[in-house]
């Protein structure tokens, strides 16, 4: 297996692949953590507007040192800057925008995803109490939902499951799963393996996956 071993390499592969799903004119919500990095790889020549569910359209880069503004943060509570054309609005307007189906794409991380497109990413019973934040709303209503995550847990346990075992964030809501090993489409028939990381076979990906994968007739190498 020549899949990338280091965490930073894995993440780079994932975020670069997801970035290729962006289209000119998209309004996109990027989840906290790894999905945030996708902003660094927007393909040249296209314009996407990043939405932050705390009430902003037009997230820009992190501010230059000394330019941090306590009134200007993203949903991860990080200081950010604004782009030309930025707008601000209340949380109610922000979620009306999301629930009304006006956000083209939501990318978020997950602890588990299953073959019916259900996702668990907010709670481990008895272990942590953090809250779902806006994730349940985003998966319920964004036009397209991509899960960007490492293929297995730190301990090597599969995260792409036949059925999620953790409390769910949404049922049957995920369209696409992108990991460092594969690009997987969620369909009525089940999970279709569309791309595998360079140097890997479909069997390699299946071994790291709990759900059964249907291999696409047009299986391709995953270009980053």
């Amino acid at each position: 297996m020549s899949a990338p071993a280091k965490d930073t390499d894995k993440r780079e592969r994932i975020v670069k692949r997801v970035a290729r799903e962006l289209r000119d004119g998209f309004y996109v919500n990027l989840g906290i953590g790894m999905p945030t990095l996708i902003a660094n790889y927007v393909p040249p020549g296209i314009e996407v507007i990043l939405q932050s569910e705390n009430g902003m359209l037009g997230i820009g880069p992190y501010p230059a040192e000394g330019q941090e503004d306590p009134d200007l943060i993203n949903a991860g509570k990080e200081t950010v800057s604004e782009m030309a054309g930025t707008s601000y609005f209340s949380s109610a307007d922000s979620f009306a925008m999301i629930l009304g189906g006006h956000i083209d794409l939501s990318v978020l991380g997950a602890m588990e995803v299953d073959e019916s497109g259900s996702i668990a990413n907010w709670m481990i019973p008895g272990k942590m109490v953090k809250g779902m934040g806006g994730a349940m709303d985003l998966v319920a209503a964004a036009r397209r939902v991509i899960v960007a995550m490492e293929h297995t847990s730190r301990g090597g346990a599969p995260k792409v499951m036949k059925k999620c075992t953790l409390p769910l964030t949404g049922v049957g809501v995920v369209d696409t799963i992108v990991t460092e090993l594969a690009y997987i489409r969620v369909t009525e028939e089940g999970l279709v393996l569309e791309e595998v990381a360079p140097g890997l076979t479909a069997e390699d990906v299946q071994r790291a996956t709990h759900a059964r994968l249907l291999v696409s007739a047009g299986l391709k190498s995953m270009e980053s």
Binding site: N40, P61, P63, A64, E68, E78, T79, V80
Partner: peptide
């Protein structure tokens, strides 16, 4: 106080995000 929870800044060389 207007406390900042997560101060994130752009490094000079990575200003192209």
């Amino acid at each position: 106080e207007r406390r900042i929870e997560r101060r994130t800044v752009r490094k000079a060389e990575a200003a192209s995000r």
